[in-house]
């Protein structure tokens, strides 16, 4: 095990993770006045989260069927304004139950 190499790699990772977080927040002090840019930045969080969720959520579990069941559970719970933790654990619970059932009946 070459620890020097590993530590250098970790340092590199830490720096290239920190810089994109730090630079815009530290440099941009003025409020943006442009209406388009303001709207754009307000919509960015939703766009980023949506792009991170789909289609990854379908392959985040043991198989596609349990992934779909987890997705449906999460959408239903979130639709009824359950909190983050309830939705997260609720969908994981549904996936767990689905995979147990599938194993018993010999699917997946």
């Amino acid at each position: 095990m070459n620890y020097t190499r590993i530590l250098i790699c970790i340092l590199i990772m830490a720096v290239v993770t920190y810089l994109p977080r730090m630079l815009p927040l530290t440099i941009f002090r003025k409020k943006i006045q442009n209406q388009f840019l303001k709207s754009f930045l307000a919509y960015v969080p939703y766009a980023v989260l949506a792009a991170m969720t789909f289609p990854e959520i379908l392959s985040s579990t043991g198989n596609l069927i349990s992934g779909l069941i987890g997705l449906a559970t999460a959408i239903i719970l979130a639709f009824f304004n359950r909190g983050l933790l309830v939705v997260a654990l609720g969908s994981a619970g549904a996936v767990f139950a689905a995979e147990q059932v599938m194993r018993w009946i010999g699917v997946g």
Partner: peptide, 28 residues
């Protein structure tokens, strides 16, 4: 079996952030 089920948890959390505002705003 528990670990694979927990793999979906983070995406469930994202959906919990996305869906309530999406119900209120067509743009979102």
């Amino acid at each position: 079996s528990v670990r694979t089920a927990l793999g979906i948890a983070i995406y469930g959390m994202f959906l919990a952030i996305l869906i309530p505002p999406a119900r209120k705003s067509k743009a979102i």
